[in-house]
Amino acid sequence: MNNQEKYNQAFMENFSIEASKLNAELEYNTIPEWDSVGHMSLIASLEEAFEIMLETDDVIDFSSYNKGKEILKKYKIEM
């Protein structure tokens, strides 16, 4: 599984959404599943999938599907 697939899988598994919903429109609190608790589950899944530990500021800034990709670049995760 490449990085993009791992990234998408984390969203799909945590939020029970289809791949077609993974786009620039997907932001924190735009779907019921991406609330404060869902956010922590997503972050935990990404940390496990990419074997990284996100800094607190990055957890807070991770506000959308696209923003997340940008943040992960800091951890040398390219998609």
Binding site: Y28, N29, S36, V37, F62, S63
Partner: peptide, 15 residues
């Protein structure tokens, strides 16, 4: 289990 007080410290902000 969840402790909401701690969760609040990680509230997402949209810049």
């Amino acid at each position: 289990i969840v402790m909401p007080d701690i969760l609040k410290q990680f509230r997402v902000t949209k810049k």
